[in-house]
């Protein structure tokens, strides 16, 4: 395989990726690099395809064009067993947590261990308690997923994602819909797990402050293109109007508050139509 174009210290490398859903182009020839041991953030408004990007990296979706390389493996060229072996080393935190609702917190965290290792139950117990301790929820092990708050569910899912000691974690909107205290806890967790476990993290988010606080590098994507990239400082000082609008949250700018529509007055005056 020709890896010459991939920078040495990249764990995940996305090159010239294009992907469409129906007629809608989600990605149009974008390239991104994710450095080992760093936290790289992908930011962009809802519906730009951030979740789609993570699913492409995880090999759940196939790109129309371009390659995605994870730790030297071209994800979409791997055979099924190879892909599954690679996935064991990639953790993913889904937006909803995606906990298995028919199992307790303990069994959820134990799930990947029981599926992929032949460890005795006593060892599994020790490992699960360690992972739960790391996210601060060792005391919640007997609860069922429906008894957890949103923030707790995400932390449990995080404990499950690190159960097999992966080399990287992908976080899908970890802060969305969280109260300030949970947000703070998650920010702290993502940062400390990254340092302590030496993980590579990919954080997908549209929460500007939380992400800027922990990311080493940020990509801002919109309408299938990378519209800005750099360290949080560089992004803040970016001259791109688009990036400025996104970072400051201005209602109007290159991205419009209004969905495209015909003239307002005309629209109000054209009576007799249902819509």
């Amino acid at each position: 395989m020709d890896n010459s174009a991939i920078p040495q210290n990249s764990l995940v490398s996305v090159q010239n990726l294009s992907f469409s859903r129906g007629n809608k182009k989600i990605f149009d020839d974008i390239s991104l690099e994710f450095e080992r041991g760093k936290i790289t953030a992908i930011m962009g408004p809802s519906g730009t395809g951030k979740t789609t990007l993570l699913k492409l990296i995880g090999g759940q979706l196939f790109p129309a064009q371009g390659t995605i390389t994870v730790d030297g493996n071209n994800v979409h060229r791997l055979r099924r067993t190879e892909l599954y072996n690679l996935r064991k080393r990639m953790g993913m935190l889904f937006q909803s947590g995606a906990l298995l609702t028919d199992m307790s917190v303990f069994d959820n965290v134990a799930f990947p261990l029981r599926e992929h290792t032949h460890l005795p139950e006593s060892m599994i117990r020790t490992l699960v308690l360690m992972k739960l301790q790391a996210v601060g929820l060792r005391g919640a092990r007997k609860l069922m997923p429906n008894e957890l708050s949103g923030g707790m569910a995400r932390r449990i899912a995080l404990a499950r994602a690190i159960a097999l000691d992966p080399m990287m974690i992908m976080y899908d909107e970890p802060f969305t819909g969280q109260d300030p205290i949970s947000k703070g806890a998650l920010v702290h967790l993502i940062k400390s797990l990254n340092t302590i476990l030496g993980l590579t993290s990919i954080v997908v988010s549209h929460d500007v402050h939380e992400t800027a606080a922990i990311a080493d590098y940020i990509y801002v994507i919109s309408e299938g293109k990378v519209v800005g990239q750099g360290t949080p400082k560089e992004i803040e000082q970016s001259e791109s109007e688009w990036v400025q609008q996104f970072m400051t949250g201005a209602a109007d700018g290159p991205a419009h508050f209004h969905y495209p529509a015909k003239d307002y007055v005309d629209d109000l005056l054209s009576t007799g139509k249902r819509y």
Partner: peptide, 17 residues
């Protein structure tokens, strides 16, 4: 519902078919 709540997708990402 498992599909709608991403449990199946999540399982696939945990390398479980």
């Amino acid at each position: 519902l498992m599909k709608a709540t991403e449990q199946l997708s999540g399982m696939e990402m945990m390398a479980v078919d």
